[in-house]
Design a protein around this nucleic acid. Structure first.
Length: 271
DNA sequence: CGAATCTCCTGGAGGC
DNA sequence: TGCCTCCAGGAGATTC
């Protein structure tokens, strides 16, 4: 389940492709979250990859005439392989480069996306209304407190809303709230500036830690051995229902919040 | 407008 | 061993 650190790790793994020209594009299964544009196999060959950036969980591949947007959904994964490496069942999309390396997208559940933004458009509706990046300075206590001031929903749902802040998925939402000692059902508007400060800090450090762990598993992530190489981060609460809290040893609780499993410690986290 | 719910999809786990 | 049911989850679309 790629969250922001996995997406950023994926982006970094693609950097060796910078400056290379596309030889061919193969679409095997076009129906992801949205259809993969049919014209890509026509228009992308001979274009050079000029830039690789990230916004939220989108990877932006800048080519000569536009930008390819990649999203991994929840089961998506990108590998760099030799073009002779045979595609498997859920390998839906390939970009083969002039040096015979292929960027291959695998996505069993097909929640991911491959989209195209023409140079003539200077934005994309998907990117227009996104909140600040969690690791950048724009995401701070003052911003968060103001953004939450009129929200009655649970804080956990609030921080998972990409309009408020991007890149905080279900795992890191529970983890960050535990680290900040905030009960996930706390009404968003009730958080004091002080608690917003703590939450911002813990969201940043949780993501930062995961990113640091991701750097070391880069080779696995892009390996050809089928090992997804996701982080083997030790979680405080995520997936630890009934197991002892690592701080107070009382059992971790699991509830449904916004249709999502939510893990927390009743004793350590207060409303 | 905010908030809650629905939806896409497949693999894996658990029950019988 | 096989079939059924349930669950996981990002985030836009839909409904209230």
């Amino acid at each position: 389940m790629p969250e922001l650190p996995e997406v950023e790790t994926t982006r970094r793994g693609l950097l060796p492709l910078l400056g290379k020209a596309v030889k061919s594009v193969t679409i095997r299964h076009a129906t992801l979250r949205w259809p993969i544009p049919k014209f890509l196999p026509e228009t992308l060959p001979s274009q050079t990859l000029r830039g690789l950036s990230r916004r939220a969980k989108y990877i932006l591949c800048e080519f000569d005439s536009g930008t390819l947007l990649l999203h991994l959904g929840m089961s998506g994964r990108i590998q760099l392989l030799d073009c002779n490496y045979p595609p498997e069942k859920h390998d839906h999309f390939d970009i083969e480069f002039a040096d015979n390396q292929v960027l291959r997208l695998r996505d069993p559940r097909r929640f991911g996306a491959v989209l195209w933004i023409d140079n003539k458009e200077n934005n994309h509706t998907l990117l227009n209304s996104l909140g600040p990046e969690p690791l950048e300075d724009g995401f701070n206590a003052k911003y968060l407190h103001k953004a939450l001031s009129n929200k009655t929903l649970a804080i956990k749902n609030a921080i998972m809303d990409g309009h408020l802040v991007v890149g905080v998925g279900n795992i890191y939402a529970s983890e960050s709230l535990f680290r900040a000692r905030i009960h996930p059902e706390t009404a968003a508007k009730q958080l004091t500036v002080k608690r917003c400060e703590k939450l911002v800090l813990e969201i940043k450090s949780t993501l930062h830690d995961a990113l640091a762990a991701g750097g070391s598993s880069l080779r696995d992530f892009f390996g050809t051995d089928g090992n997804p190489g996701y982080f083997q981060q030790e979680y405080f609460v995520y997936g630890r229902t009934d197991k002892p809290c690592k701080v107070c040893a009382k059992p971790i609780k699991c509830i449904r919040l916004g249709q999502r499993s939510t893990f927390f410690c009743e004793h350590c986290q207060k409303q």
